[in-house]
Simulated scan of single mutants.
Amino acid sequence: MGGVPKQSLVFQGQSLLERAVAAAAGARHVAVVGEMASLPIWPPNLLSCREQPHFAGPAAAIAAGLDALADIGEDAPYLLVLACDMPLASQAVAALQEALQMSTAADPANVMAAEGNRPQPLVGFYRTPELTKACRDLAARGALVNGSVRSLLANLDVQLVTVPAGSTSDVDTWDDAAALGIAAGNQSERQDRQTGGANVGGNS
């Protein structure tokens, strides 16, 4: 994106980070892994943290979010993992919540968004103990830093849930931004040089 932080891009009057936090509105606590200057108002349940080292990739960001939530005693059974570059992700989150409600207590599910044959692991509800163990296992192998989400989730039993078309469309290039109606230069002036990470929310 030419050095422009994706989370500060503006879609329909909100920064992408604002939209991601809003999509996780049902969470008891939300951990934002990355800079938060594009949030004009910080909800009282919001935590700020960073992966170590900075820019160590999405698996390390998820681990940082889990640690931040654990530090305040958050013990929700599920964690919503949500990247901040999907402006329509609230639709996908709603579909995943519905799928969770249909799962049984005897067979709890990890659920991940999918459009057609394209899974999107950065929109998913994962059982907190399983995801925490996966992070620790990856760290023990020295593979957490710069590790992929695919490797992090490799040993989890994950159910794919079909979500509304376009709800996991992400912004990786200016062409992606243009396709979603985000014009070049239409970014938040509140965040000129910041860089982003994953948005992680603990959900009850």
Rank of each mutant, 00 (worst) to 15 (best):
G124V: 03
L79G: 02
L152W: 07
E74G: 05
C135T: 03
A165V: 10
N155F: 05
L80N: 02
R127N: 08
S90F: 11
A177M: 00
V171C: 08
G57C: 03
C49Q: 03
R118V: 15
L131C: 04
G65E: 00
T132H: 07
A59L: 04
Q97S: 12
S103N: 09
A56C: 11
P87S: 11
P108S: 10
D175S: 15
A89I: 09
A178L: 09
D176L: 09
P43I: 07
D157A: 14
G73N: 05
V158F: 03
P58E: 01
L69T: 10
V163T: 02
R50E: 14
Q52R: 13
A113F: 02
V93P: 00
A109T: 09
G73C: 07
G65H: 02
G116C: 06
V145S: 13
T128K: 09
A64K: 05
N155S: 14
G116F: 02
L69N: 01
T132M: 10
Q159D: 04
V123S: 01
G124N: 05
D107N: 13
V145G: 08
V81H: 00
E74C: 11
A59M: 08
E98D: 15
A95N: 05
L96E: 00
A76I: 05
W42T: 05
P43M: 04
A143C: 09
P53I: 07
E51Q: 15
L160G: 06
T132W: 08
I41P: 02
Q97H: 12
A60M: 06
A99L: 10
D172K: 15
T128L: 09
A106K: 13
S103D: 15
L69Y: 04
A61Q: 14
A140W: 07
F55D: 15
A64E: 00
L160S: 14
P108M: 11
L88H: 06
P164E: 05
D176C: 08
A105M: 12
I72Y: 08
N110Y: 09
L160V: 08
G65T: 03
L69A: 02
R136D: 13
S48N: 13
Q159G: 04
W174L: 08
P108F: 04
Y126A: 01
E98V: 11
C135N: 06
P40T: 05
A143W: 03
T104H: 12
E51D: 14
S48M: 09
N45A: 13
C49K: 01
A140H: 10
P108C: 09
M86F: 05
P121T: 07
H54R: 13
A143M: 15
L69K: 01
E115D: 10
R127S: 07
V161W: 00
A94H: 06
L46F: 12
Q97M: 12
L144S: 01
D75Y: 06
Y78C: 04
A106E: 14
R50K: 12
S169A: 15
N117G: 12
Q120I: 13
C49Y: 08
L69F: 10
N117T: 13
L79I: 15
T173R: 09
L153C: 15
V158K: 05
